[in-house]
Design a protein around this nucleic acid. Sequence first.
RNA 1: GGUCCUGUGGCCGAGUGGCUAGGCUCAGCUCUGCAAAAGCUGCUACAGCGGUUCGAAUCCGCUCGGGACCUCCA
Length: 508
Amino acid sequence: MQPLKIYNTLTRQKDLFEPLSPPFVGLYVCGPTVYNNVHLGNVRTFLAFDTLYRYLTHIGYKVRYVRNITDVGHLVGDGDEGESKIDRMAKLEKVEPMEIVQRYTNDFHDVMLQFNAIPPNIEPTATGHLIEQIEAAQTLIGKGLAYESNGSVYFNIEAYNQQGGNYGKLSGRILDDLLNETRNLDGQAEKRNPLDFALWKKAAPEHIMQWNSPWGRGFPGWHLECTCMSTKYLGTQFDIHGGGMDLKFPHHECEIAQGTGINGASPARYWMHANMLTVNGQKMSKSLGNSFLPHELFAGSHPLLEQPYSPMTTRFFMLQSQYRSTLDFSNDALRAAQKGYKRLINGLRAANSMQYIPSEENTGGAVLSVSTPGVVADEKKKADIEKSVQGIYDALNDDLNTAVAIANLFNLLKYVNMIYMNQLPPAALGADSFGKLKEVFVGVIENVLGLREEPTQGMAVVEGMLAQYRQFKAAQQYDKVDEVRRCFKDQGLVIRDMKHRIDWAYEE
RNA sequence: GGUCCUGUGGCCGAGUGGCUAGGCUCAGCUCUGCAAAAGCUGCUACAGCGGUUCGAAUCCGCUCGGGACCUCCA
């Protein structure tokens, strides 16, 4: 097993990842609130954890990956007051709240699929776990960690800390500071302490989504669902909990308090937070009006976009930075990413078609490479490949540093291209290095980074047109040759005209 | 105001105190019907000032700039 280090927000350092019961790993990621389309910033977080899931699986762990759908309880505006986001949309559009939920859940799934994200093993919803949430609130009341007030139930932070809890340990906040800085919000009278947060909220009559509870009609508080669902599917203690940086406080802090209060132990051992996607240096968010929807990106239809960018270009773009760094969005950066992605994916096609040819063997009319009698092993290149392969795993083990992993991948790409272009006989690398080159290059791109080819429409007739091209070429009918080239170009493809063979590639 | 992060070459973006990250762009070369691609070569940066050190982009201090969270947000 690879020695993976993960930056743990709890300890503020990179900790060696040691699962509670290897080879099994429990991974919980906070999913979206489905009241609206996911934007690109949301996507970044989910792709970061998709990559983590992929890597954990790649290195041999059996991962149970749980990512929830928040379909109730998330309020608009400040704190524990205000309308439910989903309720509001439902009223606005005069439809059932569950229609809103369904629509944006579908959208979310579509989008993630386009980005080639692997669906989680379990995708629980908050409304599907109301019983658990009510029970959790009751348990907390029973332990003196929560209280009922006017039909709502609040978590008692003071009591929690008196019982040995440490509210603020995740986000590095000090309770007294929080108390001093808390703004005076309306309707806080129900709470004993402004920091107390809702486990269950009494529903106003006009609130559509409401259920019976021991405290009357109401709905669950936002933070409670994650505690209940992670506990149910991963146990009272599990390995990794992930989410966006902006959920660190208060959401995850509350989860820890709830989990600790109910089960007597801090829920997750490793807390991971993905950083924000920024536009011109500012966090991408709906309220700032600088967020892109994925389909706007794919179509290039947003005013800030100079051209369309494909899902894989975008995925590659995001992977070129480390998940804990902010990543700034710009057309220049996306364009550069597009070129890099195409180059890498052309290399992927090349690598997939590569076959090892021992130096003694005469391949007789070889398609992939000429026979290479008497080739001497190139120890320098072999060592360089070895170094880059190790570099990839070292990088991924270092808190999923995909940027450095990709840098090493480009080093390998050089050798893939040299073989593909017949500039380097495979035999010069020896079977072992060659095998490793191909296996790691392909495996990391496809399985860990989740990058794949984006076929174009004209793909079906490519081989036929290529055959024509060869004929025209042989007949030296260059005007026809150029015509075929134009056809390819119209499809976003290009012809690779090499000495030893003719192939097509994605236009870079 | 509090807590924290951050400032790298034309652009993006990694960097554990000493050894070329990488991508994109640009220039040249080889190859080529012409191209394209590929390979090779060139372009050596760390906001400013001071300190620690044999040695700092990397540690410390100050100054200036940017950002996040503190209120819903991935």
